[in-house]
């Protein structure tokens, strides 16, 4: 469960960072990225990625967990990009879902 949480956090983090970029925000919401959204989105994104590392370490220890985390990041990132290209709203909504699911999975 914690390993799935790590993946969800990675996906959610990348989704937030993606949404925090003008180009991709505009694709989803059809308007420019407002300044007051930019910082929270990016802060959340980085925080989620960091928490993903912590979750990974919780399962596998720090050295092994770091290796897993790099793999998780790569896969989550590739999946997000794939998804965002074809279904941007769904892809980023999934990011929100993952963000919500992560604490639940971590606690289970």
């Amino acid at each position: 469960m914690m390993s799935i949480a790590a993946f969800c956090l990675a996906y959610a983090g990348f989704a937030a960072l993606c949404l925090g970029m003008d180009r991709h925000y505009e694709t989803v919401f059809d308007r420019a990225l407002p300044r007051r959204h930019r910082l929270p989105l990016r802060a959340f994104g980085w925080a989620a990625l960091t928490l993903s590392l912590c979750a990974s370490a919780a399962v596998w220890g720090w050295s092994y967990g770091t290796v897993e985390w790099i793999g998780i990041l790569s896969l989550a990132g590739l999946l997000l990009i794939w998804f965002v290209t074809y279904r941007p709203q769904a892809a980023l909504a999934a990011g929100g879902l993952c963000a919500a699911a992560a604490p639940v999975l971590a606690w289970m």
Partner: peptide, 28 residues
Amino acid sequence: FFTFRPAKGGQRAWMDGHNVLSVLGLPF
């Protein structure tokens, strides 16, 4: 980082795809 524009076709699409695959997997 997150840019992939297959609809553009031709060189642009291949370049985006190549970039995404390279950057996301860079540590590996």
